[in-house]
């Protein structure tokens, strides 16, 4: 018998009592000021945040970052911000992205409880750019903030993209004597730009 059926038959042969699959209806944690919470947690996990009232303000907001001003190779996937160095859309082999100084990518939603930002595949043609760039900027609409991971997963259509991920802070390690080092393999810095944040707090209600 093949391994699949052998494993399944063994599992079916040994019945196990079932206590039922629980409903996940909370109530879950909420924050009075989700935006403040998001920014506070992001700082705690080693990231930084900027705000831009309109998408058009993005280039100006990013120009505040000295390393961004100095960047020679920038792939921006967020239109008002210009790419620098070459036309990165012509890249076919993701290895070529290793030279990136900055990647500017759109985030679909942010989670207040842990500063995680959801990014899905079609918005980033080569996902390697998110990890190979020396610095990463995620542009997240302030209106997209949710309180917890429960709301986040409820808003993300399950399994529709081949790849999607939450990023919370820059790449980090504490494997040498528990000393926190930012920039383990991936980006050395993570900047989240929250756009259009001048909206009423009631928009945060679940």
């Amino acid at each position: 018998m093949d391994s699949k059926h052998d494993i399944l038959n063994t599992l079916r042969r040994d019945p196990v009592p079932d206590t039922g699959l629980p409903a996940l209806d909370g109530p879950w944690l909420t924050f009075e000021q989700p935006l403040d919470q998001f920014r506070e947690v992001l700082a705690a996990v080693g990231g930084q945040s900027l705000v831009a009232a309109h998408e058009g303000d993005l280039p100006h907001a990013l120009a505040q970052l000295p390393s961004f001003r100095a960047a020679q190779r920038v792939w921006s996937l967020v239109p008002p911000v210009a790419s620098v160095g070459r036309d990165w859309t012509t890249v076919t082999d993701p290895h070529e992205l290793e030279v990136l100084d900055y990647c500017v990518a759109p985030g679909a939603l942010g989670v207040a409880e842990n500063a995680a930002v959801w990014i899905a595949h079609p918005t980033v043609p080569h996902r390697a750019a998110l990890f190979l760039a020396q610095h990463l900027v995620l542009v997240v609409p302030g209106r997209s903030l949710v309180h917890t991971m429960h709301e986040a997963y409820a808003r993300i259509p399950p399994g529709q993209t081949s790849f999607g991920l939450f990023i919370s802070g820059p790449s980090k390690t504490a494997d040498i004597e528990q000393a926190l080092v930012i920039g383990a393999h991936g980006p050395r810095s993570l900047t989240v730009v929250l756009t259009g944040t001048d909206f009423p707090a009631s928009r945060f209600s679940p």
């Binding site: 842990n114 995680a116 529709q160 790849f163 991920l165 939450f166 919370s168 790449s171 991936g186």
Partner: peptide, 21 residues
């Protein structure tokens, strides 16, 4: 994902939580 990193290292979530479909 709410439990794992908090319980492992006290982080609110791991820096990368990647979903492969």
């Amino acid at each position: 994902t709410r439990l794992l990193a908090r319980n492992a290292t006290g982080q609110p979530v791991t820096a990368y939580t990647s979903h492969f479909h």
